[in-house]
Design a protein around this nucleic acid. Structure first.
Lengths: 231, 231
DNA sequence: GTGCCTTTGTGAAGCCATGCACAAAGTCGA
DNA sequence: TCGACTTTGTGCATGGCTTCACAAAGGCAC
């Protein structure tokens, strides 16, 4: 008998909400740094760049952490969101592929401050192996499985060339990893139960180019549009 | 009198579709490299990692470029999507902030191959100014407005620390730029008519952590879930 | 204590996106 | 020329997300 089980959301938090929680967390940290104790949904929504009703509905999925008439306690909300996202624990991350992007990621401060610890840097190129980056020594990717197992790596970042990505992906999955962040410009094929998220730096630029082109050649104020509406 | 004009989509291409066009383009380029002449929606959808019905509906927004019974001509579709995205023209891009990430972006091959030309690298740090990266010389960000105007920069990439991002943003907008790609972990405030897209490297990791935590502490096969369903 | 004021949490409605399923359209072999 | 087969393009139903609008809930002043 097969049951339909809502994947990865036993408490039913919508994916769209999960994707925004980090945004709220960042805004809250900013408020906390400035010593703000409580914040209304209106103000927090402004800081996070979203609609306040959406913010309230998002937070309501986590529980009733606000006080009517007052707002949300900044510190308490930071803790609750962090806990929900799993950031109160320490995540060991391995970065495979130490090119320009891999180096940038290794040095990126946003990881460490959010419970992510870079536990390994690996590359297939002997010329790179041995380099010291962000306090770590680059290791040869032959030892990928050993690094994953010995250091409890649960999330792998793939920053290799496109040609190597699928192979690396297969190996880390075989080694037990089920969460992959892919920067290589390819679609990775993975079995069920493995989460892949991808970031393609050029896609965002292409989307911008689309809108920019529209502005130039056929923006809202162009004569043809009005003609089109009239006809 | 104010009219509600559907922003930036005179031909009504949904944002969700626009966001996937670069994906199709990448898959098509892969097919073209292997010498494939035509491709069915089924095969292309597989290569792009989407549903074939969705692919067909997306492409139908551009026009009727397929042949029933045969499929899509790879080269022709590459051209049509490129044209739609505005990639048949040359876009001058300036990168502000030449830290690790800025360097990685400057060297990223995915830009040049898609009609994006890095026309300027700028940084406020005198220690970085003068460095040679990817065939360019890093200039001081004092000259930001001049670079934008003289070199016809229409898209600016912000890769500065969070504290400097809004100021840079304001300046490039004042200089006439209306398309911004923001890597700084901060919500930029911009006037109407300016497009901002953001990439936050740590957000994706946090989303992965959320799902990873669910797998470990409360995955679909855990006893508590069944108890919960029974109770 | 009481009543006013602020702000949350949420029902309800509308909108957009997804995916099925099929008719229309075109190819290809005979 | 014709018929069978393949594949596109799309109407339609479904589901999820967003947004509005408001009742419920709590604080605060007096």
């Amino acid at each position: 008998m097969i049951r339909r089980i809502p994947q990865a959301r036993e408490r039913g938090i919508p994916d769209a909400t999960v994707a925004r929680l980090p945004l709220y967390l960042r805004a809250l940290n900013g408020l906390a740094e400035r010593g703000t104790a409580t914040v209304s949904s209106e103000d927090l929504a402004l800081a996070a760049g979203v609609n306040s009703a959406k913010l309230r509905k998002d937070l309501s999925h986590l529980g009733s952490y606000g006080t009517r008439g007052v707002g949300y306690d900044v510190q308490y909300l930071i803790y609750q969101i962090s806990r929900e996202l799993g950031l109160t624990q320490d995540w060991a991350v391995a970065i495979v592929g130490v090119g320009n992007l891999g180096r940038a990621l290794a040095n990126y401060g946003g990881f460490v401050s959010r419970g992510f610890r870079v536990a390994g840097l690996l590359d297939a190129d002997p010329a790179v192996v041995g380099d010291h980056i962000a306090g770590l020594t680059v290791e040869h990717s032959d030892g990928l499985e050993a690094v994953i197992r010995k250091r409890g790596v649960s999330i792998v970042v793939i920053a290799t060339p496109a040609t190597a990505a699928q192979q690396v992906c297969d190996r880390v999955i075989a080694a037990g990893v089920t969460s992959i962040l892919n920067f290589a410009p390819v679609v990775l094929t993975v079995p069920d139960g493995v989460d892949v998220r991808k970031v393609d730096l050029s896609i965002e630029l292409q989307i911008l180019a689309f809108h920019e082109q529209r502005k130039v050649t056929g923006g809202p104020m162009m004569a043809e549009d009005w003609a089109g509406e009239a006809g």
